[in-house]
Structure formats: C-alpha cells, structure tokens
Design a protein around this nucleic acid. Structure first.
Lengths: 349, 349
DNA sequence: TTGTAGGCGTTATCAC
DNA sequence: GTGATAACGCCTACAA
C-alpha cells in the first residue's frame, strides 16, 4: 500500500495495471453494473496494492454533486457557546455517519466572502445554517442560490424552509407554570445578551414571549433580565436582582454561560437553592448537571437536533421539490433538584 | 443578479453572452494575462448580471489544488474542551482570511473513513491535525499520503514535521518556581484525565515532566492528580486532596474544565484563595478570568496558535520540500490574584 | 489583445 | 461482461 497521491495515480493507471478499461474500474468501484468476479478481484488487488482512491473533485464534476455539506456557524468573535460547540461536533458526527464531509463557514461580520464561496461555487450539496435570526438575509441568499438548506432555528415567517428548533416559548412557559404551581409569585427570566436579542435572536425573543404569556396567564409578576453570556455578567445581573427585587423567589433561564455567576451571586447573598430560591430553564445537560444542586431543566438535545437536521438536509437534497418539513423539539424537563415550594417569608432587602 | 447555479451556468455561457472566448473570461477572472479594459468590463457586466461564480470542483480538477484545508478534530464523543473550541473557530477564521475553506473531520474511534476520505481523495491541499499524541499513527498516514500538514502538539520524536505547540513543560515548571518563591513546599499538579494521559496525550505528559523536574530542582514535595475533564471530577479530586494531604498549599493545573469543581471544593473546605491556598497553571483566559479570584496563569493563546498553524500550513503547501518549522509558544504568565505567600501554619486534617 | 484546443480524473451512454 | 468515448467546467499552453 504505497502513497496514494503519487504522480500518475488515477483510474486509468489502475485500469492499465489490471488490464481492463477505465469504465470497468469505475463500475467495479460503484457497483452500478455487473463485473465478473475474476476481474473485480484483479482490480481490487491493484487498488489495494496502490492505495488508490478516486479524486473527489473529478468525481464531483462528473456526478454533479460534492458529497459535502456546508455548516454555517456564527463568527468566532463572539465566542461560541458550549451548546453550539456540541452542535458542531454532532453535525460532523452525523455527516460522517452518512459518509458526507462538512465544510465549515463562518458568517456575519467580515466573512461574507466565505459564505458566498460556499453557496455559489457549488462546493456543497446543501447547507445547515446555525443561529438563524428572526429576519435573516442568509435565508434569502440560500434560496436565491437554489441550494437545499436546513435552519437551526427559524425566522419569523417562512413556511417554505426546513428547520429544526427548540420550542423555547413553550418550554419557558412550562417552566413558569411549574414555578407557579410551587407557589412562586414573583419570578424572573434570565435571557441572553441585550445585543443578541436586539439583533433578532430567535430563542431570546421566543423565551420572552413564552415567559410574558405564562406570567400573565398565572397572574404572576415577571421581570426580564438581559444578561451577557458569561459568568461575570451573570453574577452582576443576579446580585442586582436580589438587591433591587427581593420579592423575586425564582428564576427561569436560557443563558447557560451565566450560570456559574448565578451560583456565585446566590452564594454571596447566602441563599440556598432550592430552599430560598428556585431555578430552572433550558440548558445543555452538561451545565445543568454541573450546577449545585443540579438544575431541574429542559436539556437542549444538541446531538439529536444535529441528527434530525442532517436527515432533513439529506432529504431536501434528494427531493428538492418536496414540501418543507419542520421539527420543533420539546425536550422533557428533567427533574433534578433546584426547584421547591416558594419560601413562606419574603427576604428583606 | 439572478440565481447562480441555474442550468447552463458556466464560463462558456458567460463567454457567449459577452461575445468572447472562454479563455478570455478565464483570464479576465484570474488576471493571469492582459485583457483590454473594454472586454474586461463587458465580461464583468455579464458576470454581475448573472451572479456567476466558477465551479469549485472543475477549478480544483484543472488547477490541481482545492483551496481547501482539512481540520482534524478529536471525535465528538469526548466533548471538546473550550480551548479546542476556540481553536476550531480561530482556524476557520484564519483560513477565511486567506480565502481558504475548511473541511472538518473527526478522527479516532469510528471515524477512520472520514479521515481516509480527507487525506486520500485529494479533497484538501493540506491538513491541520489537532490533539497529536506522543505516538500518533495519523502522522505517519499523512506523511505516506504526501499531504502537507501541521500538528497542534508534537509527537515524541519527529524533527520532520511542522507543528505548533505550547511549552507545557516549561510553563508548568515556571509555575512551580513561582510557587516555590512564595514559600510553598508541598504542591500538586492537577493533570488531565487518566485515560487521556494513558493514551499518550502530549500536554499531560509534558506538564508532568516539567512538574517533576521543577519540584525536584526546588526541593519540594509534589503530588500529581489525574482528574476527569469536568467540574464534578475536579471537586472530588480536590476534596480528596485536601482531606488526605492537608500539607499541600498550592496547585498548578492544566485542567480548565475541572476549575469550577476546584472552586467548590475549596469553598466547601472553607479555604480562601489565595490566603489559604494558591492556584495557578495553564488555562484559556476565559476560564482564568471566570475564576474567583481571577487566576494567575499562562493563557493558552488559541487564536494566535491557530493563526501560526495556518501560516505554517500555507508555507508547507507552497514549498513542500522546505525544512519543517516548529513553533513552541510560551505565553507569559498573566498576574491576576490567585497566588500568595504560603500560609504560615499548616492546615490540620 | 484574443481565440483554439487539449487535458485534469470521473461518470455514464453508447456500442460490442 | 467489457471497451471506447463523450460529457462535467475550468485552466493554460500554443497560435494568431
């Protein structure tokens, strides 16, 4: 098994050495027509000996497909969250399962060139688009390019595209009801950063909507906190909340990166979870389990989302005319140990 | 500007509409020979109108290069660390800067197929290989394939390959000296997981070597802790250490994921950093700054490593015969607030 | 300054 | 069962 990409290492060379024509080698490899066992074996021997693999570009050119999918990630400047990371890894895994390769592309900011290359140079057969905004120009761009794609997240109005999303509104609303059932009357929503929500970040908007609706439905008082995606912001946010609104006894969150700070703020205030303060939300299981005590929360199923997105994409590629499918995931709320009945006496300021 | 990948959308179509030959269009695009301003403009107009972009596969086939680099990441099963994540994002960023695309490939475990595709189907012009082991089969595989590559990390003996690494041995040794200067006599090294180190994970081995050497040099007593890459393992590890070896007053770490647990264990034991216990190590700045108090530590410069690796790779691609270059980075230890003079009295068990 | 033509390595449609 | 041969879309000598 010598080095593959040597000099004249192509299907013709294999054919020559095996004493057959190029087409026979091609068919022996693809299995798209009968090849006698004897010749197939002869060909295979030569291939094994030389370590030959067909050239991907030539194949893509001839077949009209690349066996590659694009994954558009948010730009690196804003550090990716752990959930996003899990997602990237899971997409790669799911693609590998289907013998597809993954071409990564940042988008937003400086990186339009990379995105344009991806979609308009026929580098990929389809695209998975992360972090879709409520109004997202890239969606139109992809449609223009007639490229099959699946969104992670969904824009405001678009029955015409495939997407996979988590039901942030429904789940947060569920969390609020859970807290209401436990007797909490004043609760807060720990949302993502102000900038993110301002630029139309779907989960932020939908969590807010679900929160407001549920708060009203149950006659509660609700406070929304927009909080940076890091521990320090979380600590500041919660410290301020505890100081300024001591009547608040519970919190729902979608901001996992802030959790270590939340923990510190509660510790510093001498509050015990769940005795003095209840906590729940939508969080990658990793973060939920690392909290003390472990969080009762809906675990964002990054792996399953990636797998569903990939099979949706494969389907979109196979049948471009098929009606778009949506998957709105509503993972169960895992009961751990961070919510309890509201404390009987209010904390004083 | 209509949809690009329509039906007959290729360089010939552009040529036809502009009333020139295909080669003229090609040259107008590449600039590899003079084209009169008039025709160039006419061609450009047609291109703009139709939104044409050359087909990547055809170009790769003709040029013999793909304008794509491969990034081999550890498999998703073992969750990527934050540092690795930063690194992936930074590589993509650096590649985009050079107008290169990035093909992602998991490796190890189930994913040999993906790795083999990457290196033997001419899908990429070069490879960045993350998480190199002290003995790493992939290195030989890449060399066999004659594919330019750059390692993040370096194997035990290999002057023949390009790599970028952090000087774990030197930095940990530096940390130990710092602690020794502060009067600590019993210190510990919080290493990565036993499995990782057992499979020849370079940073683990080199941190250990630097630790042992420095401990001996300064006449200290050292304990090495192999600890899982998560908060719970960190907490268990440190709790046990504090209980079993109360004479230990300082710790150096390369296990950032364990830090939240380290913090909890110290809190639970009622120890204050740095008054009662000093902490330092090699950690992505993100984690160092999220600790309370912020850690005095060498910040792993993921962004710069990625940039250096990318330019090394570009150089390897340009001149495959050039002697291999190495970059051993030794980022400065950022003074924050987690180390102080050793406590005068030993803690009791 | 521009056009012609051959080749890059596959796949796939014909014939045999 | 197997071989020629024409695409696939682009690049680039070689001519003009």
């Amino acid at each position: 098994m010598a080095g593959p990409q040597g000099s004249g290492m192509n299907i013709g060379e294999i054919a020559r050495r095996a004493g057959v024509s190029r087409s026979t080698v091609s068919y022996a490899l693809s299995g798209k027509r009968q090849v006698s066992d004897a010749t197939r074996q002869r060909i295979q021997d030569v291939i094994d000996e030389l370590g030959y693999r067909p050239n991907a570009a030539a194949r893509a050119l001839a077949e009209g497909r690349t066996r590659t999918v694009g994954l558009v990630i948010p730009p690196a400047s804003k550090r990716l969250t752990h959930m996003q990371l899990d997602f990237v890894a899971s997409v790669v895994e799911a693609a590998a399962q289907a013998d597809l390769d993954v071409l990564l592309s940042p988008s937003g900011g400086e990186h339009e060139r990379s995105f344009e290359r991806l979609i308009s140079e026929s580098r990929v057969d389809g695209v998975i688009l992360m972090e879709i905004r409520i109004e997202d120009a890239r969606v139109n761009r992809l449609r223009e390019a007639r490229l099959p794609f699946v969104g992670i997240g969904h824009p405001a109005h678009d029955p015409q595209m495939c997407w996979v999303d988590v039901d942030y509104a429904g789940l947060i609303s569920h969390c609020v009801r859970h807290l209401a059932d436990l007797g909490h009357r004043d609760i807060a929503l720990l949302n993502r950063s102000p900038e993110l929500v301002a630029t139309g970040y779907g989960p932020g908007h939908r969590a807010r909507a679900g929160f407001l609706q549920a708060v009203e439905e149950h006659g509660l008082t609700g406070t929304e906190l927009l909080c940076g995606d890091d521990a320090r912001s979380g600590q500041e946010c919660i410290s301020r909340l505890l100081a300024e609104q001591p009547q608040v006894t519970a919190l729902a969150t979608i901001n996992e990166a802030a959790l270590p700070g939340v923990q510190r703020a509660l510790d510093e205030a001498g509050l015990q979870v769940p005795r003095d303060f209840s906590l729940t939300g939508i969080v990658a299981s990793h973060w939920a389990e690392d909290f003390r005590p472990p969080l009762t929360a809906a675990d964002v199923p990054a792996g399953e989302m990636a797998a569903r997105a990939m099979s949706l994409l494969i389907e979109c590629i196979r049948r471009p005319a098929a009606p778009p499918e949506h998957v709105l995931m509503s993972p169960p709320i895992t009961l751990r140990n961070s919510t309890a009945a509201a404390p009987t006496f209010h904390r004083s300021r």
